Amino acid sequence: MADLLKAETVAEFRAKGATVLRAVFDDWMEVLRAGVDYNLEHPAPNARDYRTEEGGRFLSDYCNWDRIPQYRDFIENSTAAQIGSELMGSRTVRLFHEHVIVKTPKTGMPTPWHQDLPYYCLDATQTVSLWIPMDAVPRERTLEFVAGSHLWGKYFRPQRFDGTALNENDGLEALPDIDGDRDAYDIIGWALEPGDAVAFDYRTVHGAPANNSATAQRRAFSLRLVGDDATFARREGIKTSPPFEGVTLAHGAPLEGPEFPLLL
């Protein structure tokens, strides 16, 4: 099978922990928008659904691929798995979960700086999230990354979207004040069009500004993929997100089972 990505794109992903992929999912926008629209009307019981005083809505929902057919169609039939394989350098690609975040107009709530991996019941070095916007995203409202932070060798304390700690005494280091000293970091991000995607490592520090626009919404579908070395992690006394409460895998077992289907 011919490679889909240029060598320099793969190199940027591995060196900086994030890269942009232009127009890779143009043909899937109608399908994904239909799935996200259904998700907005039918959020899962554990969804985070915030409403602001200005009338905005911030929905964060995940693990709906088995009940929303458009999500399953994209996951199983798009080029996402092959793209993930090339970026991770992995022979196999497995679904960890999908995640939808919608910021409607006047959603004055930023996504705080964080890493994804410390939230997860997962240990892995071969990881990639594909963040796919349904709407045009200008640079000032786009997802931002601290380039190279996936190579710092640190896990930072997970936070809820309201900024409170997910686990108060998890023993992890607090994130530095990135916004208080932005010039000290190599912060990267891209203006995006529907059909583009941003790919990033689960260890890369990232965040997003509030959507203070009076008219523009920002709908995004994220696909979390893992490679050959992914194992299940039991973190006793620690909340993980998603919780995957029904998974019975032992700590250190290969990540497999119906919740985590093999895609490639």
Rank of each mutant, 00 (worst) to 15 (best):
P158E: 03
Q159D: 05
T107E: 09
D183R: 06
T215V: 15
E173F: 00
E140C: 07
K103F: 06
R91K: 15
G148M: 06
T127C: 12
A230Y: 02
S129W: 02
A199G: 13
G153M: 03
F96E: 03
A197F: 00
G195N: 12
R157Q: 09
R157A: 02
V93T: 15
D116Y: 00
A208E: 05
D135V: 04
F161Y: 00
N167D: 11
A174H: 09
R157M: 11
T107Q: 01
H114E: 02
L122G: 07
A174Q: 01
G180P: 08
P138S: 13
D170L: 08
A214Q: 10
A174M: 06
N211E: 08
L192G: 04
H99N: 03
S213D: 10
G189I: 13
P112C: 10
V226H: 09
M109W: 06
R219N: 02
D162V: 00
L223A: 09
A191E: 13
I178F: 06
V198M: 10
M109N: 09
D183Y: 00
E193Q: 13
R203Y: 02
D196S: 14
I188K: 14
E168V: 04
D183S: 15
I188D: 07
A216P: 00
H97K: 05
H114G: 03
R224Y: 03
V146Q: 09
P138Q: 15
G108E: 10
D196K: 10
G189T: 04
D229S: 00
R160Q: 13
A191Y: 07
W190L: 06
A165V: 07
Y155K: 11
D181T: 06
I178R: 04
E98T: 03
A214K: 07
S213M: 10
K103R: 08
F96H: 04
T92L: 07
A214V: 09
Y202V: 04
H97M: 09
A216I: 01
E168T: 03
D228G: 14
D228N: 07
C121W: 05
P105M: 12
E168A: 05
P194F: 07
F161P: 01
V102R: 01
P110D: 15
F232D: 14
E98R: 05
F96V: 01
V226F: 05
V102A: 09
R160P: 02
V198D: 11
T125A: 06
G227C: 14
D162L: 00
A220P: 08
N212Y: 05
A208I: 13
T142H: 01
